[in-house]
Design a protein around this nucleic acid. Structure first.
Lengths: 236, 236
DNA sequence: GTCTATAGAATGATAGAC
DNA sequence: GTCTATCATTCTATAGAC
């Protein structure tokens, strides 16, 4: 997905080789079962550690420990901490971009927004670590994905702003600032991933049940749709 | 505010003395101008560094550099990185708790929520670093403030949930889950602090103007109040 | 109160035997 | 492919001269 990422953390010492998504992809065909399983375990552990501590706070020792392998083996599969981080970020991008498509499946504002909000809530449920890595990146002023924000995210946002503006012009929803609406959707849906520790604590130390989560999803949809005068989505 | 904070990061080496908010307070009367100014500069620098990198990712060197003092001087004023972090977190607690009061100034749901949302938006504008330190704490599963979430925040939340539930029972707002409404308010308002780098990037690399920010504040109030059937707040 | 110099621990990464 | 041993760097914190 991202062949070229910006150079970050120039103060660190440089390395001879940096694995990119492309070179990793190229080797997919010849991966042994051991390699595939170890890479999967490392990426999963890395996602959780980077989500919790950000790039700088994460340590390769902790990632290796959570992956259940000795630290040198981690460097065998991913030559540098930075290369590993880029792979993790890359994986998250793909998930988020896929979700974005649900915005375009339908031209009815109520139905399109219902699908998009629901999909974003599902991602917060299924991939909370990815959302947290993204949050950490933004808190750190996006050293890795900054140009990505300026290109892919900006283009995606502009095109959806245009869609929302058209709905307004056609009188199908109230006059709202499209960006403000998008930020509200992003903030509210991602809150269920990024702040899930706070939500769990307020919920008596336990995660929201499936029923409670589904109810929250429906409430978020209802409040936002009602709030912008789009009413409820028609039954499918 | 917080005299006793939980023990964190037990793996790190221990220190002979940990400054608490109380001991620091006790010395207020005899502070020289130099001490006061240096402590202020250090705390401001620390807030921005902890906001950006979290506790583990932050370095005392960077804090000292941003404060414009040599690193050993930082340790002269704050004996450990952890003590400094606790002071920063303590400062933020006070701001957030003050804001919470605006919820109780009025019994009319539209007016109370308008005041609370507006106040929270103002805090995101005026103290974005504090909000980011909080966000980092939650992402890291709140190693410092965990018991605070379970006591102060839980009590505050419960009492406001009761207020919202009463409004529902009296038919003054729609049937909504009170927690879901609160999370939506927190998420949306804090988004303007925690994700301001993303918002700025999408805004052409510049911060939102005062006018745009005020408009966003009004929109957030309008969408949420309309969304829960509270209508607009009566003119003051 | 200030700051040079540095101790002691942890970190990212590598060498090289198996 | 795996892992013990270890290096070079960076970190928190302190000693001690001024």
């Amino acid at each position: 997905m991202i062949d070229q990422l910006v150079n970050i953390y120039p103060k660190k010492r440089r390395h001879k080789f940096t694995m990119t998504a492309k070179t990793s992809q190229k080797r997919n065909g010849s991966k042994t079962g051991i390699r595939r399983e170890n890479e999967r375990a490392i990426l999963e552990a890395a996602e959780s550690v980077f989500a919790e501590f950000g790039y700088r706070g994460a340590t390769t020792s902790l990632i290796a420990e959570r992956a259940g392998i000795p630290k040198p083996n981690l460097h065998y599969y991913f030559p540098t901490k930075e290369a590993l981080y880029r792979e993790v970020v890359d994986n998250i991008f793909n998930i988020w971009l896929d979700a974005a498509d649900s915005f375009d499946d339908c031209d009815d504002p109520a139905e399109a927004l219902t699908r998009y909000i629901s999909k974003k809530m599902d991602i917060s449920r299924d991939h909370p670590m990815g959302s947290k890595v993204w949050a950490n990146e933004i808190l750190q002023k996006a050293p890795v994905i900054h140009d990505y924000l300026e290109t892919v995210l900006k283009d995606w946002t502009n095109s959806r702003v245009a869609i929302i503006q058209r709905w307004i012009d056609e009188g199908r929803i109230d006059q709202v600032n499209p960006e403000t609406l998008l930020y509200m959707i992003w903030a509210t849906t991602q809150h269920y991933a990024d702040f899930n520790h706070q939500i769990e604590t307020l919920n008596g130390g336990k995660p929201l049940s499936d029923d409670r989560f589904e109810a929250a999803k429906q409430q978020v949809v209802d409040i936002i749709l009602t709030g912008i005068g789009a009413g409820r989505a028609p039954a499918p």
